[in-house]
């Protein structure tokens, strides 16, 4: 099964410029997924950078790389939850994630995500990210839950 960008927009509540997946190339719902994210110099994260910086300063931010992988995990999980899921996926914990190589504009990242466990409404995913044959990141464990927006907005005091 392959999911085009429009289908990702129906699954994820994230929107431009925070929707950090372009396409899902293959997915076995509830088991594993391979997703693609093309990095371009047009992304807003490159808009604030001062002129004349060294080449390494154009590395794609680690925060966005991790978010992109996390969105792959969210798609994999949400597909297995079936219709009727409402709420916002919240990234609640991560463990043993290693960034191995920088990613630059022009690189196409492939996330290989496995859904390890779903326990009482919390999902645990793991996997790796690649540019060509180079591994750029390893994700030991990422945990997420889905919470209704009004429950998030309601502040416990």
């Amino acid at each position: 099964m392959r999911l085009e960008h429009g289908e990702l927009r129906t699954l994820l509540p994230h929107r431009y410029p925070m929707l950090l997946l372009d396409r899902v190339d293959s997915v076995e719902p509830g088991v594993s997924l391979e997703a693609v994210k093309a990095v371009t110099g047009c992304e807003p994260c490159y808009s604030g950078i001062a002129e004349g910086q060294a080449p390494d300063r154009y590395a794609y931010p680690a925060s966005l790389l991790i978010e992109s992988f996390g969105q792959g995990a969210a798609v994999l999980w949400l597909l297995s939850r079936g219709p009727g899921t409402t709420g916002l996926p919240m990234f609640t914990a991560a463990r043993d994630c290693v960034l191995l190589r920088q990613v630059y504009p022009g690189d196409v990242i492939r996330h290989r995500v496995r859904l390890e466990q779903v326990v009482h409404g919390a999902a645990f995913a793991a996997g790796s990210s690649w540019v060509g044959t180079d591994q750029v990141a390893e994700f030991g464990s990422m945990m997420a839950v889905v919470r209704p927006a009004d429950a998030i907005a309601e502040r416990k005091r």
């Binding site: 509540p13 994230h14 929107r15 410029p17 925070m18 925060s63 916002l88 919240m90 609640t92 927006a149």
Partner: peptide, 15 residues
């Protein structure tokens, strides 16, 4: 970026 996370409710992402 926060405009897209999320349109219905601004939540500062964990990342």
């Amino acid at each position: 970026y926060l405009a897209g996370h999320f349109p219905e409710l601004t939540v500062y992402p964990g990342v």
